[in-house]
Design a protein around this nucleic acid. Sequence first.
DNA 1: CCCGGAGATTTGTGATCACAGTCGGGCCAT
DNA 2: ATGGCCCGACTGTGATCACAAATCTCCGGG
Lengths: 215, 215
Amino acid sequence: MLINPRPDPSPSAHDRVYRGLRSRIMHGEIAPGHPLTLRGIGTEYGVSMTPAREAIRRLVAEGALTLSASGRVATPDLSNERIEELAALRALIEVELASRALPRAHLALIDRLQTINSSIGEMVARHDPVGYLRTNLEFHRTLYLRAQAPAMLAMAETVWLQLGPTMAKLYGRAQRREAPHYHRHIIAALKAGDEPGLRLAVRSDVTQGLRMLVS
Amino acid sequence: MLINPRPDPSPSAHDRVYRGLRSRIMHGEIAPGHPLTLRGIGTEYGVSMTPAREAIRRLVAEGALTLSASGRVATPDLSNERIEELAALRALIEVELASRALPRAHLALIDRLQTINSSIGEMVARHDPVGYLRTNLEFHRTLYLRAQAPAMLAMAETVWLQLGPTMAKLYGRAQRREAPHYHRHIIAALKAGDEPGLRLAVRSDVTQGLRMLVS
DNA sequence: CCCGGAGATTTGTGATCACAGTCGGGCCAT
DNA sequence: ATGGCCCGACTGTGATCACAAATCTCCGGG
């Protein structure tokens, strides 16, 4: 038996850089199209170019960053078609994840979701796009963790990562005035054990984010 | 205007290594659990450790390789749960891709699919798991390219990549005697413009590969 | 015959360097 | 004043090296 339950006691340097950048990108703390340099990231995280390069290469592989023809790296500025496609992927994967989580969703989980949902409301109230995005993703991830499907969750997070900068920009543009009301539908469907209702609620919640672009 | 229409006139070294390894993994030319070393790959491709490391890091990010706690890298040996999960992802994404390709599937595409399908029969006849896997994926990719959904296709290919070594092992074990007959259903549904039938055929074709594991 | 441990080898990690290509800013000609 | 051009700084790429940890090998003891 392990004394220390922490799975990663000594994170390598490139992993620290990777996690840091990934979190900032996924939560929308970096604007779309913002350029990044290896040396800049290296000095920012106190490492040499090598770990910075590996972290960036990994993020490029996941679609979190785009590589220009000259090798320059920047956070992606998504076209409308790509946004629609990624939203469709979210709908596909997250509906499945929610459906698989439903049989395992006990009361403590639902309570936690409600708590997170009220946090989302606070973020909306203080007009904090980054905080909104972060707690919103926490809401979804908390539910999907119950699905016991790590490969699917990883795919969903990869999609979030690609959408991160763009969604933060859009959220910042369209001033929301309340938490997404489909979250309440999700919680209600979970309580009722209503699988078709849950699928519809998740799908609606995901595609709702797309609507803000069209308008 | 460019004289040379080739989009990638000077592939960087790490890209050559990445493409080579990715192809070998996806087509099942490397057995599950096979270890890889940076220096070995470097000498094999005639480059130093740096490009080899970037290529491997990228493949790890895509799930094509697993990284042990000590940093050792090897092709993954998937558990049954993970195989089921990846097959479910294939079903989700590829059904959607096929559905989106249907309106754009003209006669030339269907002819090409039939040609590829007969190639698959040849591979089965000569008991060539790698060739079978390669042509089978070519069949699916040819269809999905018509969906004009690059993000979804990339996701599907990532799943293929993760399943590559395992599927080759399973295919080699269970001696097939004919090409997957659901491919004929797919072609028939494309000809008839029958979307529900196409969705069912693709889903059946994907999940059929899973059955060979259960048996 | 099997198990364990000490030394040698192999392996990944991170830093540094040289080099070529790119991008930007300022200078000159018009 | 403005447009084009050139030079300089900057950036990514790939190679090499030092180092620590892990693995393997082989040998002796039980």
